[in-house]
Amino acid sequence: MTKKQSRCINGYLGQNFIVKLCCYFKFLRALEEDAVSILTLEFNYLRPYKREQLSTSGDRLADKNGGGNSHESEALSFELLRCCFGAKLLNIEMEIQYFPRGGTKVDYTCSINGITLGVSVTRLVEKERRAKNIDPFNIRDVKKFLEKKLKGLQNALKNVMKKWDKPVLFVWAESPRLAKLAEDAWENIDECLKANTILFSVSVGEEYCSMFHNPNYFKNKVTMTTSSRKRMND
């Protein structure tokens, strides 16, 4: 562990970002138990995404995430799990096999302490609603949003050929208010739908933040391939 990178129960400080968690042992217990759990974290960039030094696995997610517009959110969700909880990447989206095909998918699978996680990453953002003069999200909106994602996770687990042990719904929230709404909405969702899912509700600081930009941002962004990044060890 270098001076620029440290891990503790209360948080993580690295070269790319800072995470305030205060839920380290709660997460480890949730891994072992067949029960739902919610973890609320705070995430702040230390440098813009295009200048971040991702791990080899983070680069795999950034470069080969199935052709979507979610390069940053998926790669950084894994980097957070790796740096804070020791996650190891197993398969990216296009490597996971399902039968029948054509249903919902998870974004990647990883393992922590020998337990396999199927991770679905999403973003809770109000920028476009504000631009269109639509009312801000309320708890009903967020509950409906989370329920849709949970149904997708259940469908993916039903059809995947190699099962994972725990489903994870990883939500990047544009603001602490949205993260709190996700936490409150989670408590009102039917337990059968949540199954044994772990929810990460992560509020993101504004400085350097680009993951909530319009998808055209990703089309115009200069792609940094694995060969052009300075990699960190997994």
Rank of each mutant, 00 (worst) to 15 (best):
K144L: 06
G58M: 05
V202F: 06
F137Y: 10
G11Q: 11
A195W: 10
T226R: 08
E95S: 08
G103V: 04
F170K: 03
R47F: 08
K230R: 09
V202T: 04
S227T: 08
F27Q: 02
W164R: 02
K64R: 12
I139N: 12
S73C: 06
E95K: 14
H71S: 07
K20A: 13
M94K: 12
D34L: 02
L153R: 00
M224H: 12
E191F: 14
P100M: 09
R7L: 14
R47I: 07
R130L: 03
L81V: 10
K4A: 03
M232I: 14
V204W: 06
Y108E: 05
Y108V: 11
K180S: 11
K149G: 12
V202D: 00
L178N: 05
L157K: 09
L31K: 01
A35Q: 02
V119H: 01
A182G: 00
A195K: 01
I18H: 15
N113E: 15
E79K: 01
N159V: 05
V204P: 02
S111V: 09
R29W: 12
L41Q: 09
N10K: 14
N155P: 08
I198E: 02
G11A: 08
A182E: 01
K162I: 11
E183F: 02
E207H: 07
E33A: 03
R51G: 10
T109I: 03
K50S: 09
D135T: 15
V160T: 13
G66M: 00
Y108W: 12
K20R: 11
K219E: 09
E187D: 07
A62F: 12
F200T: 07
D190L: 06
E207W: 15
G66L: 10
F170R: 00
K162T: 13
L146S: 01
E93I: 08
L76H: 08
D234T: 00
Q5E: 14
L146Y: 00
M211A: 04
F17A: 07
C110T: 03
L153P: 06
Y24R: 05
F78T: 01
L193Q: 03
Y49W: 15
N69L: 04
R177A: 03
R140Q: 15
K50D: 13
I198S: 00
D165W: 02
K64D: 09
V160I: 14
N188D: 09
W164Y: 15
Y208E: 03
N44E: 11
R229A: 03
K162F: 15
S120M: 01
L178R: 00
N188P: 14
T223A: 15
Q154G: 01
K64S: 12
L124H: 02
A185Y: 01
K158S: 09
I38P: 02
G114D: 07
S120E: 12
N16M: 08
P176Q: 11
T40C: 10
K148R: 06
S57C: 13
C23H: 09
K105S: 00
V125R: 13
I115F: 07
S203D: 07
N10G: 13
K151T: 08
N138W: 02
E147C: 11
R29L: 10
T225N: 05
A62N: 11
F137E: 00
F25W: 13
